[in-house]
Simulated scan of single mutants.
Amino acid sequence: MTQYASAHLITRIAYLGYDPADDPNWPLSGAPSHAAYSKWCRHICGIACLRMALLHRSDDAPSLFTLLAGARRYGAYVQQDDEIKGLIYAPFARYVEDTHQMAATVHGHLDPADLLALLDEGRMVMTSVSREIRRPGLDPERRGGHLVLAIGHDNGGSSTAIPAAIPPRPVKRAFPSTGSPTSSAIAASASTCAAPDRLSLPRLPPSSR
């Protein structure tokens, strides 16, 4: 599961400058037009996380752009001129609970140890990491900025639904550091947080097919 129409293009998009708007499979995303896909596809990693969680629950989920439309109605994204701000967690959590009946908790502060504790409780955690999550041997250029769904861990590392396995040290490097500026995607009511919020979801057993 990815925010882009073609999973095999992710490495080229993330690291090699490939324009995702050139993906011929864009209609598979559920986008109403090529222009809409081009505009939004780089901003919906959190929507992809939600779709993964919904598929885990019932093996069925709306398309990425159907979920995006719902999240936008709740104010989880804000457009200012040509700039898109989001994902904004507080309204997104309300959307998840109201529309999809899945409990969602926003965590104002969450360090790697807290993340592992939530995973031990059986929660799925949507968290912001560096795009270097796929290349854990490298020092990240920045911390945070890309949302992934963490679903478990192994001896202090973390497993995400990408799939990707992140050893303990890169997990710490990929997280936004304590005291860093609050992400622009965080709602104003959370603007005093020391670091970007995380969102945890219940980890429910898949329904019987």
Rank of each mutant, 00 (worst) to 15 (best):
G145S: 13
L115A: 04
R134Q: 07
D111L: 04
S177K: 15
K172N: 09
P168G: 03
P136C: 09
I151M: 12
L119I: 08
S128D: 15
G122M: 04
S158N: 14
L118Q: 08
I133Y: 07
V148I: 15
P167Y: 00
S200D: 14
P176E: 01
D154K: 14
V148K: 05
A117R: 06
L138F: 07
L201R: 00
P168D: 12
S184N: 04
P181E: 01
G145N: 08
E132R: 02
R123Q: 10
G122Q: 12
L118E: 05
G152V: 06
D197M: 06
A164I: 10
I151F: 03
A190M: 14
T182Y: 00
L110N: 06
A117D: 11
P136K: 11
T160V: 10
L118P: 00
P196K: 01
P112R: 04
T127E: 11
P176H: 15
H153M: 13
S159M: 14
S180N: 01
G144T: 05
I186S: 10
I186A: 10
I162E: 15
K172E: 11
R203M: 05
R143P: 08
P176F: 15
G122K: 09
R173M: 13
R131I: 14
L147A: 13
F175S: 01
A195N: 07
I166Y: 04
V148G: 07
V129A: 05
S128H: 04
P112S: 12
V171T: 10
A161W: 14
D120P: 05
K172P: 00
R169C: 04
S207I: 07
S207A: 13
S200C: 04
S183P: 00
R198V: 06
A187D: 12
A194I: 04
L201C: 01
D154F: 12
V129F: 15
V148L: 07
A165E: 11
G122Y: 11
E141N: 07
T192P: 01
